[in-house]
Design a protein around this nucleic acid. Structure first.
Length: 244
DNA sequence: ATAGGCCTGGAC
DNA sequence: GTCCAGGCCTAT
């Protein structure tokens, strides 16, 4: 994101080309044409949402889903899975690169909040253990499910929800409202560590997880065995021996 | 609350 | 070849 900002802020968009039919459905030809000539005044990120602010108040809003990323500078032309290309007035390009092609890109009208309802990032200074516990207290759902709710904290995906809970030794089935202050503090610390370690790594990166995708294997911390079950339609991995 | 759809690389 | 996973939305 920082890299993207460096390349695009201050530049004018000369064209927006959509390569993938799924994205073409989401952003119409008239909209694509309408961004030509717009100047990029800022770049923001929240969770996996990418916001490119235009000088007319509109926002080009991309969501990376699980495998999207920007390819900028020298990497742009060699993106393996180009889904959309932003052409700039210095003749450079920025490519939305996404093997799974689940990423989305939309143009948000001026004055609209592109990420309304989205919670703050886990590393936002406003996200303290006390603040988080307040949010949790209102939720009876299992803590794993609440961690996946982007309206609470943005950017925690299924893999990192399991990883964070393992790291803080908390049973994913526990109602969020029942976590103690000490547990919430430990969990927040784990979330930040896990996300920090993950940032920069791609989906197909080194991928050495502590619990995720390790069903039936030995817990790396105790003599337990990693179990898998489903919560809200998603796989949860945990060790019932050391996660309480 | 749960199921199905989007999309495709990688694991059977 | 078939199935699954990821994040998130829509439909039942």
């Amino acid at each position: 994101m920082v890299e993207l900002r460096r390349h695009v802020v201050g530049r004018c968009i000369t064209d927006l080309v959509i390569h993938h039919p799924a994205l073409r459905r989401r952003i119409k030809p008239t909209q694509r044409r309408s961004v030509r000539g717009a100047r990029i005044v800022g770049v923001r990120r929240r969770g996996k949402h990418q916001l490119i602010d235009l000088d007319d108040g509109r926002v080009l809003h991309a969501h990376f889903r699980m495998s999207g990323d920007w390819a900028v500078g020298d990497d742009a032309a060699s993106a393996r899975y180009p889904r959309a290309t932003i052409h700039l007035d210095d003749d450079s390009i920025v490519v939305l690169d996404d093997p799974r092609a689940l990423s989305s890109i939309v143009l948000v009208a001026a004055g609209e909040d592109a990420i309304a309802g989205l919670g703050p990032d886990a590393d936002d200074a406003g996200v303290t253990a006390a603040w988080l516990r307040e949010r949790f207290e209102k939720r009876r759902a299992p803590i794993k499910v609440v961690l996946l709710d982007q309206a609470v904290v943005s950017g925690i995906g299924n893999i990192y929800a399991s990883e964070s809970l393992w790291s803080s030794r908390i049973d994913p089935r526990r109602p969020a409202s029942e976590l103690t202050a000490v547990e919430v503090r430990a969990l927040l610390k784990s979330i930040r560590e896990v996300l920090a370690r993950a940032s920069g790594a791609r989906y197909d990166g080194d991928g050495r997880f502590q619990v995720y995708d390790r069903e039936g294997k030995k817990c790396r911390r105790c003599k337990g065995t990693i179990e898998r079950f489903t919560q809200a339609g998603r796989s949860t991995y945990f060790c019932s021996k050391c996660q309480r």
